[in-house]
Amino acid sequence: MKKVSTIIKKEWMQVFKNRLVLFSVLFLPLFFTALPLIMLGVMGGSSSSVEGLTGEMPSEFTQLCPAEMTAGECAQVFVVTQFMMLFMLMPLIIPVNIAAYSIVGEKTTRSLEPLLATPITTAELLLGKNMAAAIPAILATWLSFGIYAVGAALIVSSTTVLKALFDPMWLLAVILVGPLMAVLSVNFSLIVSSRVNDPRVAEQLSAVVIVPVLLVFFAQISGLFLLNQQLILLMALGLLVVDILVLYLAVRLFQREAILTRWK
């Protein structure tokens, strides 16, 4: 584990020394935290009935709002629910740049060969690079969620809305699914990074991993389906399996020889 922790520390020293990279890691969580809080604040004022919302929100969603809720509260529940998806997206998006650059970046600076000449195994190297990219993303997501939860609790007065915010389903999504998403995103990016020769290509291709989650996000907004606790647990289980498979694939696809000899 010493080698893994050495790689993690090295990556962090390199990444966070660059203030722009640090900013890019922090900007998204801050933006994704501030945006729903602002919207919650704006929407809270409406006192018309839930019925008035028909047509503005998916019917599947308005059915979940009890009749005693005001339109503003229902809208707040809607916002809370939709923006919770962002906390699943965040750990997917944040590490992409770091992970995508991690192998191809070492290729461009020619530091990969001395690194590969050490007795480090491919699994140790990739695990180190994976954790170095995933841990900040997970921590940033949890921190953002914490800020969001505290901010929402201060803005929202309705216990029904707060209940929706602290629904175990979302806690599961943020605490369990989020990290699994981060690991998936990082592993996918590492595969791309080890197969391409240009950091820009690596970043662009790595971003593809966001697409499936965006589909879920838009499906939920458009009311195609609503996430529930069961679905989240299934998603976590599926992600766990996929994460293990993708990590295995990343190790298999990391061909030292091809990386060293085909890179010019």
């Binding site: 010493k2 080698k3 020293m13 390199q14 020394k17 020619r110 000449a117 050490t118």
Partner: peptide, 27 residues
């Protein structure tokens, strides 16, 4: 030990830290 064609150092890290990384990797 190998000295590669290009030094391949981590340019934004200190000289000391560059060596510490490899000292740890070589245990």
């Amino acid at each position: 030990g190998i000295l590669t064609e290009t030094p391949g150092l981590y340019d934004n890290l200190s000289a000391e830290y560059n060596l510490k990384i490899f000292a740890n990797l070589y245990e």
